[in-house]
Structure formats: C-alpha cells, structure tokens
Simulated assay, not measured.
Amino acid sequence: MRLNEEVELQGRLVALVPYGAGHVPRYHQWMKSEELQKLTASEPLTLEQEYQMQRSWREDADKCTFIVLDKLRWVSGLCTEEDCMVGDVNLFLTDPEDTTVAEIEIMIAGVTKLGIKKFQAKINLENTISIAMFQNFHFKEVSISDMFQEVTLWLTVDNCRRKWLLEQTNHIEEKRYSQRLGEAIGKIHLPAD
C-alpha cells in the first residue's frame, strides 16, 4: 500500500518498516519452512514469485504490510536491516464497502492513520497457538467455517479500546522511512516483470 511506503514506526523493542525488495531474500528463506507455511496458510513460492508478491503488496490499495525489525540491533548499526528482521505485520482491507474493517495477521494499532474500527483474524482451526494469542489480545470468536477449517475472530475498536490502544502505543514514534539497506540494495538482483 502506498500509504505506508514511507512510514517507519518505532516502539521500544521493535521497529516496523515497509516491506521492500531488500527484505525479500530473508522473507523467502523463512517461507521455505513447512511449519511456517502451515501456520500462515501459505503456499511455497519461488524467489521470483516472492519479489512479485512484494511488489503487488506495495501497489495494492487493500494491503498494508510492514516488516518487524529487532529495534535494538537495528539502531545499533552493527547489522543490516535484513539481518534484523524478526517478522511481519499485515493488514488486509477486505470489505470495499466498509474501509474501517481490516483483517490482521499480528496485533498492531492501526487506528490513527487508517481509521480501522474492527480487526478480523482468520486462523486455521489446528493453529491453537495463534488462536490463543489473538484471544489474549481480546479478539472474540465470531464464526467457525467447517468448509475452510478456520475460525474468525474480531476485535472491535470502540472509543474505550481506541483510547487504550493509543495509551499503549503513545511511545511509538512515526518517522519518514528511508531504506537503510545501504549498498546491499545495488547488489540485489530484482527479477524482471
């Protein structure tokens, strides 16, 4: 999503940066894990397909993707941004008629810029670890699909929840993101479209 292409969010322990081409090789390595594929309901992709996916996520108006960095290692300057990667955060605007609803893959506060009023998580029924994590974040089960073998959980952002989220994230500093992969950018082979 172009909205977050220059947004960097810094918390106490992590920083969120836009998912860029320089992150793809490490992300691709992660996604080779069969366990991670199962937990994220993902299919294995080639490196070229992963680059295409990164570009589409950047261009699509209905996706907002950040890479999660270990902030302490990253700000030290002793390692590359790619080496500091610890995960990702995705928001999918799934309802074109209600742009205040977003499907989320990990908990973040997206209420100020995007105006999100409801987070929705769809999780495979066998993924009890993720279900428990989202329930700990106060997501409530709203449906179970036997056909897709998944549970849908929602977190509604009412005024009270919005205030709480803002209080919990008031230490987060938003900055203009400038890619810090340095000279490595020029060495990355980007496949042709």
Rank of each mutant, 00 (worst) to 15 (best):
R55Q: 12
A192R: 05
Q120Y: 00
W57P: 00
A192C: 05
L153C: 04
R162V: 01
K118L: 04
K71D: 04
V17F: 11
R180A: 09
N127S: 00
M133Y: 15
A102G: 05
F148I: 02
L47I: 09
H138W: 14
E6S: 11
R58G: 15
T46E: 07
M133Q: 11
Q120P: 00
W74T: 03
R180C: 09
V24K: 05
I131L: 15
M147C: 05
F139T: 04
L153S: 02
L155N: 00
T99W: 15
L36S: 03
D146M: 08
I188V: 13
F139K: 10
V24I: 07
G110R: 06
D193W: 12
N124Q: 06
C64E: 12
E183H: 02
T152Q: 09
V89N: 08
V89T: 12
Y51H: 07
L166N: 15
H138P: 03
V17A: 11
E82A: 15
S130F: 09
A102D: 11
V24D: 03
G22L: 09
F92R: 05
T46Q: 04
G87I: 10
I129N: 12
E126K: 11
V111H: 13
L78G: 09
W74V: 00
L155K: 10
E35T: 15
L3P: 05
N90H: 14
G11A: 07
E141T: 15
L190A: 04
P25Q: 07
I131R: 09
T65N: 14
L3R: 09
F119H: 13
F139H: 07
R2P: 02
K118R: 14
R55G: 06
P25A: 08
K71Q: 12
K163L: 13
L190N: 07
R180V: 03
A61Q: 10
E59K: 10
E6V: 03
A121H: 01
L45A: 06
Y51R: 05
K118E: 14
E6H: 14
A109H: 08
T65I: 12
